[in-house]
Write a protein that binds this DNA or RNA. Structure first.
Lengths: 146, 146
DNA sequence: CTCGTTATTGCGAATGGTCGCAATAATATT
DNA sequence: AATATTATTGCGACCATTCGCAATAACGAG
């Protein structure tokens, strides 16, 4: 069973209706190796059907995120991207000065994840997040580096 | 020297002009114990002067964040709030199902911060962030708890 | 297959936030 | 104090996203 079928089955089991729009949106996300913006998902779905509205794109992406089936990540310049859980786990390091992006290994967050579960009973989504801060270059250019 | 004067001096030293609007926005943030939305900052500044525009509020808040003098945090239901660095460090745990908020101690992130600096030369802002996931109650209500 | 229930959709309006640009004003220089 | 430079502002237009609601359609029952 392919990944998008898994996602669709998941929604069905949670009592959600599987509309053609939802299937196409899920397929668009599942078949993309990286992440994409809501606009990109919309553009891709529009090539398959005229009968889809941007509001439906946003609603469905929100549903997938709230069900833990996709992640929403803020990258540089406020760009918001979505990806399925199958998208390889990693951390986006976003410099708040120059806006550059650095990918980091999400294994760094294992300890934090365990502690959040132990101390607060919270199951954190830490496999695909973005962290802001200063890159090496900008630390040397700014008195706020500390 | 009060906190807002510190922030203002910081901007001046970094070559930014200190306009009356900026002073009032900084004072609004510095004098608030918690965090507030851009709209709340705007409402507060509007009680002092008519001569301020919402675009200026957003530009100034963005400047403070990019200079590391304030933090921007996404809470539940997409609400974005701002706070100065003096606002006590903590982590917001945001449940992506029910939207509840749990505050966690930011000390959990010390190890991660050190590793990001050591491995990637990245100075992460981890003292005041939000992490999404599932709270204890929602883990038991959802098959995606794992 | 038909039908009733109700979740979901498309749509235009609304909201939160950003952009381009002329006008304004902070600041440095004289 | 006057003046030039140029950063910053207010404004309306625009963009990304969400909202309310009537119409549509997925799904279960018979």
């Amino acid at each position: 069973m392919s990944h998008c079928h898994t996602l669709i089955q998941n929604l069905r089991q949670n009592g959600y209706r599987i509309t053609p729009q939802r299937e196409m949106i899920i397929e668009s996300l599942a078949h993309q190796p990286g992440h994409q913006t809501a606009e990109q998902v919309f553009d891709q779905v529009k090539t398959r059907t005229r009968s889809v509205n941007i509001a439906t794109i946003y609603r469905t992406l929100d549903l997938l995120v709230s069900q833990g089936l996709a992640t929403r990540t803020s990258l540089c310049e406020g760009e918001v991207v979505y990806a399925t859980r199958q998208h390889g786990p990693h951390i986006h390091l976003v410099c708040r000065q120059c806006g550059c992006l650095i990918n980091a290994d999400s294994g760094l967050m294992v300890g934090v994840s365990d502690q959040l579960q132990a101390l607060y009973g919270f199951d954190a989504d830490l496999q695909h997040i973005s962290i802001t801060g200063l890159c090496t270059a900008c630390q040397h250019n700014s008195p706020q580096g500390g």
